[in-house]
Simulated scan of single mutants.
Amino acid sequence: MPENASSPRTPPWFARPGSRAWRCAAAPAEVREFHAALADYAPTPLTELPLLASELRVGRVFVKDESCRLGLPAFKALGASWAVHRTLAERAASGSAWGPLTLVTATDGNHGRAVARTARLLGQHARVFVPQGVHPQAVAAIVAEGAKVTEVAGAYDEAVRLAAEAAAPADAVLVQDTAWPGYEEIPGWIVEGYSTLCAEIDEQLAAAGVLDGPDLVAVPVGVGSLAQAVVTHYRSRPSGRAPALLSVEPEAAACVLESLTRGEPVSVTTGETSMAGLNCGTPSGIAWPCLRDGLDAAVAVPDADSARAAARLAALGVSSGPCGAASLAGVHTALSGVGAGERRSVLGLGPSSVVVLLSTEGAAANPHTTAGH
């Protein structure tokens, strides 16, 4: 991105020294085996963009392009498919699988569509709650999967509350990607599902001659489930370099950045943002300990920066919506402008560093991409 793409002000930023030394248990290996057995599974591309490396003044830049994952324009199907698989298996083992389930969830778009698609393919029902501000085209895409959609006159957290209430009957189950006390198992399975994405990156980097892994991974953050999967993957590896991990959020919904700054999980009042899938006010309860201990840094970016990043990626041949392009916007913000030298030092980046950007959705996943927001 051009040097003038970001304002000269100091960006909303948090850094925690020592995170690369923290370690945790790995995700189950059978997750990748499950996804690989699906009929429409294929690894998504890891695209190298030398022009971005030159602009960011690092060695190599790769973009993990999730614009087509299991037939949908975002990565969310990885978590939804594994979580539903585990849910149905558990019910069958307990003898309670007596008829079709209604899979209930709240969503800003992509997760709900992934749950609805999974339900349709497996002969189950789906009910999806969407908060105020979700684009009508995103709602229509969920409806097209056969789900019953309830539009909520409130923010994402309110949609989650109503979805949890609707999942109370015995023939319904909540498939939510945020966790709270008493609701942790299914969100944990969703996080495990995302581990396939990270395993693919390892293999693809090795094929590109990067044998020790990346130096920096940037991940867009809503409630933090994908970031939890990324932290778990890179902080559980027994060998190779431990990369710096950077979370990126909209300035209008920076709940993880605020929580890291305060040292405890907090909820924030969210505003409007074109990064609809990241418009979340409360970190997931099971994600928080991983993010607190395993993230090196967090940054928040305005909508204009994610729009410019999406346009830059499009010019380089990568389809990315505002949420997916947030990773590039966040890295550009971190590595340029006021205080950039110190931030580069915190992230351990130099002229030969390898950077991986997670582009979590294609432009088609978010109608705001073409609306100029």
Rank of each mutant, 00 (worst) to 15 (best):
P283N: 09
V346L: 13
V355R: 02
L226F: 12
A167G: 11
L226E: 10
H373K: 15
T273P: 01
A334H: 06
R117D: 02
L46Y: 02
G209E: 10
D171I: 07
R120Y: 05
W180L: 09
R57L: 06
V266R: 09
L49E: 02
A276C: 11
Y183V: 04
A25I: 07
H35V: 05
P243E: 06
W288I: 15
S319C: 00
A172D: 03
A244R: 12
G321N: 01
V231H: 15
I201F: 03
A254V: 15
D40G: 04
L122K: 09
D215S: 03
L103K: 08
S267H: 02
V149G: 05
V331N: 01
P73K: 08
S54W: 05
G337H: 04
T360C: 10
T370E: 13
S320H: 08
R69E: 00
R344L: 06
L51R: 14
G281D: 01
A42L: 03
L70E: 03
A340Q: 13
D65W: 00
D157Q: 13
V115Q: 06
A36C: 08
A168K: 08
L122G: 13
A340I: 10
S239Q: 14
A325M: 04
D40C: 08
V175N: 11
L295M: 06
P100K: 10
R117W: 01
D305L: 15
R344H: 07
R241K: 15
S225Q: 02
D303V: 04
L70D: 00
P187M: 11
T333G: 07
L246T: 02
T369F: 05
S274Y: 09
L357M: 01
V152S: 09
D215R: 05
A153F: 13
P17H: 13
P12Q: 11
P289N: 11
L358H: 00
V58Q: 05
L245A: 02
P131H: 04
A153E: 12
R20Q: 11
L313Y: 01
L313H: 01
V115H: 02
G341L: 12
F75P: 07
R262L: 14
A141P: 03
A297V: 05
S284D: 01
A138I: 15
A363P: 10
E361T: 08
P43A: 03
V104M: 04
T105L: 13
A163I: 07
S306E: 08
V134W: 00
C68Q: 12
A329M: 05
V139G: 00
L226C: 12
R312V: 14
F62T: 10
A307F: 07
N4Q: 07
G285F: 06
G209I: 08
V61D: 03
G59R: 03
S225G: 11
E251S: 13
V219G: 09
K76H: 09
G71K: 00
A304H: 14
P73V: 12
P220I: 04
V160G: 06
R161A: 15
T360V: 11
G324A: 03
G271W: 08
I142V: 11
